[in-house]
Design a protein around this nucleic acid. Structure first.
Lengths: 204, 204
DNA sequence: ATGCCAATGTTAACGGCGTTAACTTTAATT
DNA sequence: AATTAAAGTTAACGCCGTTAACATTGGCAT
């Protein structure tokens, strides 16, 4: 495909990129297909050749977000179990704090309910997988108590997800005001999950 | 004020109630001032005599939500520290699961950013206060480790908030599929926060 | 090379939205 | 009883997502 006056030639990619930067700066509510088309210099219906509707565009942006989160989590170098767990928790929260609008799009729940968009679901699961793998390694090594993997990962995910949203929504002091809050919180959870020789009884 | 053909007489309360039930059933995105006015049988601009704009109406609904959450949390009967903490955590998650659309309005973050609506902020803080008081009592009684109250409550809140949102968004099995997930998660956190003395290792 | 077709643009239009301006009716006050 | 403030009305503006109908163009089969 070649760029001409009539055929744009790169509309899908350009719309995706521009919409992504708009979301990152101003949130998904700032996305308007008409405004997007005007900025690119194309008529509004042209976008419908590349995106079924507004929701589909947002879904693509959310997928980009999950990909970025997955890459971010994968960069946490595998070390001793404790450092690996704390490190991946902090990386998760840091991502949310650096990309609050993108994170809210990914997990806002208002748009794009789970189970309706296979590619989006897959991207989310792939990011989650990194977290689960880290927990599983620590568990396999005997560092954590012998409890169901699903329970452990659900707990860890709930904690970092809740902390992420509460901080980016201003309910808790953010990383600038309380730089060690995230570390304190993750450490506190870890205390309950570590296998202690004198305290390794089963939990419900 | 008396009801006449012209003057409605109860528009504010009726609009609030109808909008609240709409949000509970279909989410805040389903709220349209025009549709609301039509259902009530009034012209759209009439609503502007009672609500500055759509956001103000949503803020009022969110305040109602926080009030309901606060009352729900206050109903948790004060018992031994462990039961009180688990109980209030489960009550929090149960509220979110029973009122997912309302909970998302309260904490969605897309609308109504914190710090812009004093009455809304106050309602949120009042609900949070119940949670903090419960944690503080357990701490004062020596059941929990001697660590900063703010850290403990932030951890507890993050956990129940994250769990609430992940379940209502379908990322984790909900209460029907895994009725003991919330209990397992809160218990797991508690293990890390309990002061490990002999008289605290009583109940599983 | 040419003719066709699918891809990818266009303009025009529909219905819905939040919101404002200007006006009207009613309730309350003086 | 006259006036004023409260709480409705209609009409309109500019935005939005989306669709229908049409136009242009690139690439492929002939």
């Amino acid at each position: 495909m070649v760029r001409t006056a009539y055929h744009h030639g790169d509309l899908h990619q350009q719309a995706h990129a521009l919409a992504l930067s708009t979301v990152r700066e101003h949130g998904d509510q700032a996305i308007s297909l008409r405004a997007l088309a005007k900025q690119i210099g194309v008529s509004p219906p042209a976008l419908y050749r590349h995106f079924a509707d507004r929701e589909s565009l947002l879904a693509e942006l959310a997928i980009s977000g999950f990909d970025a989160l997955r890459l971010r989590l994968r960069k946490v170098s595998p070390t001793a179990p404790r450092q690996a767990l704390i490190g991946i928790g902090l990386a998760y929260v840091a991502f949310a704090q650096e990309e609050p609008n993108l994170y809210r799009l990914m997990f806002g729940g208002r748009v794009l309910p789970r189970g309706t968009h296979p590619r989006l679901d897959h991207a989310g699961q792939a990011a989650f997988q990194v977290l689960e793998d880290t927990v599983d390694r620590a568990r396999q090594s005997g560092f954590l108590k012998p409890m169901p993997l699903a329970l452990m990962t659900a707990t860890a995910w709930s904690l970092v997800h809740g902390l992420s949203l509460l901080t980016i929504d201003g309910h808790l002091p953010d990383a600038d005001a309380e730089p060690r809050l995230a570390e304190g919180i993750t450490s506190l959870l870890l205390e309950g999950a570590i296998a202690h020789s004198d305290n390794n009884k089963d939990l419900p």
